[in-house]
Simulated assay, not measured.
Amino acid sequence: MSESPPRGVAPDPAGDNGRAPRRRRVSMADVARLAGVSAQTVSRVSTGHPGVVGSTRKQVLDAMRTLGYRPNSAARALKYGEFRTIGVILFTLSTTGNSRTLEAIASHAADEGYVITLIPVAAPTQDGVYGAFTRLGELAVDAVIVIMEVHLLDSTTLVLPPDVPVVVVDSDAGDRYCVVDTNQDDGARQAVDHLLDLGHRTVWHVAGPEESYASQRRTLAWRTALAEAGRPVPPPYRGNWSAEAGYRIGRELADRTDCTAIFVANDQMALGVLRALHGAGRIVPGEVSVVGFDDIAEAGSFIPPLTTVHQDFAEVGRCCVEAALRQVRTGSAETGTTLVPTRLVVRDSTAPPPGG
């Protein structure tokens, strides 16, 4: 015996060649009829509209599950002129900043009734970015958020398509696009000022990759803060954001008796530095103080707990989504940079220098 369609849903007529009838797509009207509400209420529930009573929302969701209803995003886009989708282009998920920013974007997009479509780009080139935009165009999105650490957008050789609202994270392209970024300069200055205020003569620096905009800004702020304080500026050591790189550089710094304070450009490398100092018998913070950047969830569990600069990734994600949807709703592009504040979290990895 053939399976009967759900109540209120009629099967299509028999198909070609005597094949069994196909069930037609469940409509919004079918859901409304089963739930005992209007089609407009079903529409509001399916788009995540907040103005629906909890008990009514449950009735509608139960009816959707019973009937196997799936909202037709293409039809909704034709009717309302939007897909309720934000595209996200990024080059890597391996860094703390990118992964936590993406998580925040997805969360805030969901709060607004939007979903995200993720397009990773293997190579940070103009062709790679254009290819990602082409794919997002095929998937139909209302706006695009670009998360990139490299300086690709800082170059005038790259121009993004003008017909799609764009928000860029971590870039120096605010004169041409809407940019959201952590206040890298202020965060690095807080780290350096904290160590100088403790009495350290100067601060050594473990920098991130040279091609990273965030790394460049943190390094520049470190160098400027030391110069303005009239302190010696040691040569920076270049890492790649990994704990392994921090360990390698930390072993070199551990051999320097004149190194009593280190500002590390991210917490993962700081973890490697701490391990190297411990292995070399250098006491933290009794002999060497260490400050990181990010304030990852594990920073308070390092040995010793890490003093670090806190980045508000949730606020970065919220600002990105708000800026993207503002452009969608007004129909006009925006430029300029929004800087999200940082704050220094002081823990047990910093102290006055020996004899200080």
Rank of each mutant, 00 (worst) to 15 (best):
P285V: 00
P285F: 06
P285Q: 04
P285H: 04
P285S: 09
P285I: 02
G286R: 05
G286S: 09
E287F: 08
E287L: 10
E287A: 11
E287V: 10
V288Q: 05
S289P: 05
S289F: 06
V291N: 02
V291L: 03
V291K: 01
V291C: 03
G292T: 02
G292R: 07
F293C: 00
F293G: 07
F293I: 00
F293A: 01
F293K: 08
D294A: 08
D295Q: 07
D295N: 10
I296E: 09
I296K: 07
I296D: 07
A297W: 08
A297M: 13
E298R: 13
A299Q: 02
S301P: 06
F302N: 04
F302Y: 14
F302S: 07
I303T: 15
I303D: 15
P304N: 03
P304A: 02
P305G: 03
P305K: 07
P305R: 08
P305W: 00
L306V: 03
L306F: 08
L306I: 01
L306M: 02
T307R: 06
T307F: 02
T308F: 00
T308N: 03
T308R: 00
V309D: 09
V309W: 02
V309M: 04
V309G: 03
Q311N: 11
D312N: 14
D312R: 14
F313D: 06
F313I: 09
F313T: 10
F313W: 12
A314T: 14
A314N: 12
A314W: 11
A314D: 14
V316N: 01
V316P: 08
V316A: 00
V316F: 07
G317Y: 07
G317A: 04
G317R: 07
R318W: 12
C319T: 14
C319S: 15
C320K: 02
C320S: 14
V321K: 04
V321P: 02
V321G: 00
V321C: 07
E322H: 12
E322Q: 14
A323N: 01
A323E: 04
A324R: 08
A324M: 13
A324C: 14
L325C: 13
R326K: 11
R326W: 11
